[in-house]
């Protein structure tokens, strides 16, 4: 899977004014059926983008001409609650979104999004509402600017809003770090922890075998 750095994004934002949008709505179970990490854009909001006969629903916000190029999604609170399906993040990204702005997110989704180059931005409800109003009033013309190093969002009228992402996650997104390689830099800490922990909580392990070796005391490196 290609990891894309996220630094600054200037893009159209689509207002999806719904609360508690769950991951089943983002990508229905029936659209999950690939042992792959890409190609899920087609299934995004499948039951909302399409009418019962399978044709496009022109009233759904993402189907409106002014929002077709949107790379930022504006959503209501508790966005992407529900299942842990990482496909929800993949589908948003595959469809073309790089950022979702909402008052709150499902916790698992928040973590999944960060690891897939999809920036989740938390802003207070009234600020998200105000951006939605602005974007709707401008019919999609006028872009938002999301600046990750500065942790700011600028609305089309130029209003600057601040958000926060924990340092370690922010840096990983800016540098497009592979999370496993990033953690393996601390391999010695991990080994030291397990060696300590096996004495404190031996019952949490099954027998002496661990970290790539066959004896109790594991050597670093």
């Amino acid at each position: 899977m290609s990891r894309k750095a996220f630094v600054r994004l200037e893009a159209v934002a689509a207002p999806l004014r719904r609360l508690n949008v769950d991951t089943d709505a983002i990508i229905p179970g029936t659209q999950l059926l690939k042992v792959a990490k890409g190609g899920f854009g087609e299934g995004l909001f499948y039951n909302w983008r399409h009418r019962e006969d399978g044709s496009e629903d022109p009233d759904f916000v993402l189907n409106k001409p002014q929002f077709r190029e949107a790379e930022i999604l504006l959503a209501g609170h508790n966005f992407a609650c529900g299942s842990s399906r990482e496909v929800a993040a993949w589908a948003l990204r595959d469809y073309g979104f790089r950022c979702v702005i909402a008052p709150s997110f499902g916790n698992i989704f928040y973590s999944n999004a960060l690891k897939n180059g999809l920036l989740p931005v938390i802003l207070p409800e009234d600020e998200v509402d105000a951006i939605c109003d602005e974007v709707e009033a401008r019919q999609g013309r006028g872009k938002l600017v999301v600046d990750l190093p500065a942790q700011t969002v600028a609305s089309p009228s130029g209003k600057r809003l601040r958000f926060r992402v924990p340092d370690i996650y922010r840096q990983a997104m800016i540098d497009a770090l592979d999370p496993i390689s990033a953690t393996l830099r601390f391999r010695e800490d991990i080994i030291a922890f397990q060696n300590r922990d096996r004495k404190m909580r031996p019952w949490a392990y099954f027998g002496p075998r661990t970290i790539g070796g066959d004896d109790f005391e594991v050597k670093a490196g």
Binding site: K37, S83, S84, R85, E86, A89, N107, I108, S111, N112, K115, N116, P166, I168, Y169, P179, I180, T183, L184, R187, I190, Q194, I211
Partner: peptide
């Protein structure tokens, strides 16, 4: 106990750990 996505389960399998913000 908590649910995680595929990227994080790979991370947990490969490193025995996860990067997490304390709830």
């Amino acid at each position: 106990a908590w649910g995680i996505g595929t990227t994080d389960i790979e991370h947990a399998m490969a490193t025995g750990c996860l990067v997490q913000t304390k709830p």
